[in-house]
Amino acid sequence: MKTKKVAYLGVFLALALILSYVESLIPFYFGIPGVKLGLTNLVVVVMLYCTGTKEAFGISMMRIVLAGFLFGNMFSILYSLAGGILSFLIMYLLKKIGKLNVVSVSVAGGISHNIGQLVVAAVVVETYNIFYYMPVLMIAGVLTGFLIGILGQEFIRRFQILNKTQK
C-alpha cells in the first residue's frame, strides 16, 4: 500500500511539472502580471479530492519550487508560492464546507491564486494599485478556474471509479 502511494505521488508530481512546462510554452498573456492559465491547478484540485489534503499540499509546494528552478527564477517562485498557498487554503476550506462541487472549488482557487500573486507583486514593487486590477483578475480566475474545474471533475470521477474497481 505504501509503495503504491509513493508511486501515485511521483506520477502526480511529474504530471504537475509537465503541465508547468506546457504552460510556460503557451504565450498566454492577459496583459497583467500574475494571471496565468493555471493548468497545474488541475493536479492540485484532483489530488485534493483523490489523495487527501496533506499530499495535495506537498505536491503543490514541490511543484512550485521545482518548476521555479526549471522554467523560472527566484521571483517566479516567490509569486507562485504566494498564489499557491492562498489558493490551496481557499480550496481546502471550500471543499471542507462541502456545499460546492469541484467547479466552484476550482474557480475559487483560480481567483485566489491570481490575487495572492498580485499581493506579493504589490509588496515587492511598493507602489502598485492592486484594486485597479481586481475585476480583471476575478474574471480571468473564473474563466480559467471553470475550465480547470470541468476537466478536474471528469478526472476525479474516473479516478475514483478506477480505485473502486481495483479493490
Binding site: 479530492y49 462541487n101 467547479v103 476525479i156 470521477r157 475514483q160
Partner: peptide, 8 residues
Amino acid sequence: LLNKKRIG
C-alpha cells in the same frame, strides 16, 4: 463517490 450532478 462524487454525486452524479456535476454542477449544482
